[in-house]
Amino acid sequence: MRLYALAVYLFLYIPIGVIALFSFNAGRHASQFQGFSLQWYGRALANPLVMEALGTSLRVAFVAALLATLCGTAAALALSSLAGPLRRLFDALIYVAVMIPGIVIGIATLIALVTLFDRVNPALAVLWPASGQAPQLGMGQASLIAAHGLFAMALVILIVRARIAGMDRSLIEASADLGATPFGTFRQVTLPQIAPGILAGFLLGFTFSFDDFIIAFFVAGSETTLPVYVFSSIRRGVTPEINAIGTMVLAVSLALLILAQAILRRGRRQGSGG
């Protein structure tokens, strides 16, 4: 039994380990390890295409996760005190947002937005004062933020709502009994209790957006995120540079995940202790 578990863990971690190991390979060949070197990291970080894609990925992930956290937390708070058809409608939509394959979300967003922009752009050109160039709407970072943020928001709502459900309600009542305003109660009682959920939701949303390939593939327009860059480079052939980029990507997600876990666990302890 133990041996079996060990084998499965090896299966899960050896491929990642091999990538990390070979990212430090001095030689070009994948077949043998020819000594330790950081040259592929140097090359990846000096590659303007990689750095631009990384910048786009980080920007999109940050803004999408931030907006998702704000809208998702607000919605989770409202939903916790809501029953009836509206609540059921939201539950169904969140369920659909999580369950529909990313590829279908990507396609749907692509054709909906392109069709919309095709209608809006001529109108903008007509309405715009003759003196200037009318702005053209197109697929890019904004559409990607909107698409990634949608899934991230569904995640935030699920996590924060679970947090609210586990919250000690008597504290809220006590606060109200002692004469606190609803906003005061929210700021001093509710918010501290659900904060770990909000933060974890933000981090998971960020990780999702940072790692997502399939939605970005359809929705990013001429922009390139890091996963899209890696995918197209793999098509051109496996290089040690990709090992280095991949190792960095894995390291970023791992760091964020560990952070999210730590925050949730600490929050849980405080929640049950208070």
């Binding site: 863990y9 899960l12 971690y13 491929p15 990642i16 091999v18 990538i19 070979f22 994948a30 998971l204 990780t207 790692d211 390939f213 996963p227 890696v230 995918f231 793999i234 496996v238 990709i242 090992n243 991949g246 990507v249 894995l250 997600s253 791992l254 995940l257």
Partner: peptide, 18 residues
């Protein structure tokens, strides 16, 4: 067990190409 699921599926699949 769960951590790999939240890391890039692209990079993890790439590992198997390798």
């Amino acid at each position: 067990v769960i951590v790999p699921f939240w890391t890039s599926i692209l990079i993890r699949t790439y590992a198997w190409i390798f």
